[in-house]
Write a protein that binds this DNA or RNA. Structure first.
Length: 428
DNA sequence: TCTGGGGTCCTAGGACCC
DNA sequence: TCTGGGGTCCTAGGACCC
């Protein structure tokens, strides 16, 4: 049996941990640049708001109903996520972290009843120790555990834990689940399946293997098997930093206003190089090359459109901010054209290797490489201190706040000393 | 005025090999 | 008139996830 723990309305729940005034009222968390709705509280969902709604289209409705609107504070969410995962792991042992707010638990050696019992304890402890509400689904495959987690979240009678542990419950659950709510069935597939009369999860599971082979590809076939209780989604148990190495790292942003100036865009690219190299060093990744892309605003067909990207190989794999920034500038200069307003840009790195096992070049200076490595380590140490986030950076760097909008950002309650919550004793 | 960011996997088609 | 068979690698595009 697999368990899936899912944090309820995760980003909203994180904000509510530190600001109790947000409890019981509609709350939205926006995407970067305050562009779209990224997460909502149940009260906001009840007003008809949906994930993905552009904020400018719903602003008036939000004002009318007193919806509390927040910019995303991902440093806070990341910190709470690691606390939630640590709490779960302290009870369940090996867990497989699937996303910022979800993880799988191996319940293989448990009976269903014991798993439910242990599950209730996990949910209670996560709530007590971190303040985050969660739901737990249990099933014979990961896909069925996901289905169960939906029920655990939706119906209070389950008291946060739902198990699909026999054939009757499996069929009943799939009858009540729309095909589009199944893990792996997205918008496009919903439409294709509907053409074959498949609208509920049970319709999908009950088709013959031959039928499914004609309608869907191998990914769809795996979903079909999982719905029928045959586990076939890989068990890549992620164990701390020793999980499978990442294949790609990118850093891309939309800008609050179109950028027309070459120097301004270059400074934004330097910022992206700073962000992406810090992430690479955290993950022991080094890049053998990088791509830079720039894009005008595709939502404005009335303006001249241009997009392009360029690749630059590096003499040897590196995660040095200055070397990556320099290569990124070269790539940018190759594609920049005057006369356009650029709305989006980014750096994408697909050829990654482990910086502890990389092949150095015969023609680069080993002593210089070691000096640069120590310099980057020192910069990371200073910037990681909770008093001075990102105080040390390369000179051609544009502060994030000057190109991206985030007008309703909450404090970094748990990761920055100056933002720590204050408890007043006035009146005591 | 105003529409996110970071990933994964699969497939088809083209280039190339013997 | 008439032109094989088996394979790999790469890339772009499309689908999905949160």
């Amino acid at each position: 049996m697999y368990g899936l723990i899912d944090c309820n309305n995760f980003f909203v729940s994180c904000e509510r941990v530190f600001d109790p005034r947000l409890r019981g009222v509609p709350v939205l968390v926006l995407t970067n640049n305050d562009g779209c709705v990224c997460a909502l509280s149940n009260e906001a969902k009840a007003l008809g708001l949906r994930r993905g709604d552009p904020y400018y289209q719903i602003k008036e409705l939000c004002d009318r109903h007193g919806v509390r609107v927040l910019s995303g504070n991902h440093r806070l969410y990341g910190d709470l996520s690691s606390r939630v995962m640590a709490t779960i792991a302290s009870i369940a042992g090996d867990i497989e972290i699937f996303s910022v707010d979800e993880c799988f638990i191996d319940f293989d050696r448990w009976t269903a009843d014991d798993a439910v019992e242990a599950g209730r304890e996990i949910v209670r402890r996560v709530r007590r120790d971190t303040g985050i509400p969660t739901s737990l689904g249990i099933g014979p495959t990961r896909t069925l555990a996901k289905v169960a987690a939906r029920f655990a979240k939706k119906y209070p009678a389950y008291r946060c834990v739902c198990a699909i542990d026999n054939e009757t419950r499996r069929r009943r659950a799939l009858e009540l689940t729309p095909a589009g709510d199944v893990w792996g069935i997205g918008r496009k597939l919903v439409r294709r399946l509907a053409a074959y009369g498949i609208t509920r999860a049970i319709d999908l599971a009950d088709r013959s293997r031959e039928d499914i082979g004609k309608i869907l590809n191998v990914c769809g076939m795996r979903t079909w098997e999982e719905l029928n209780g045959i586990p076939c989604i890989d068990a890549e148990t992620i164990d701390g930093a020793d999980g499978p190495p990442q294949k790609q790292i990118c850093c891309t942003r939309s800008f609050a206003a179109n950028i027309t100036d070459r120097k301004q865009l270059a400074d934004a690219i330097s910022l992206f190089a700073t962000i992406i190299t810090r992430r690479m060093r955290e993950r022991h990744a080094a890049a053998a090359g990088l791509s830079v892309f720039i894009h005008t605003n595709s939502h404005r067909p009335d303006l001249p459109q241009y997009c392009n990207s360029a690749y630059r190989p590096l003499p040897e794999p590196t995660n040095d901010t200055m070397l990556i920034a320099a290569a990124a500038q070269e790539a940018l200069q190759a594609i920049f054209r005057d006369g356009y307003g650029y709305k989006r840009a980014g750096i994408v790195i697909s050829d990654l290797c482990d910086d502890r096992r990389m092949q150095p070049s015969l023609f680069t200076d080993g002593a210089d490489r070691e000096r640069r490595r120590r310099l980057m380590a020192a910069v990371d140490r200073i910037n990681a201190s909770s008093l001075s986030h990102d105080n040390v950076h390369i000179a051609s760097y544009m502060p994030l706040e000057s190109c991206v909008r985030c007008e309703h950002r909450s404090p970094d309650y748990s990761t920055r000393l100056t933002d720590i919550i204050q408890v007043s004793n006035h009146g005591l």
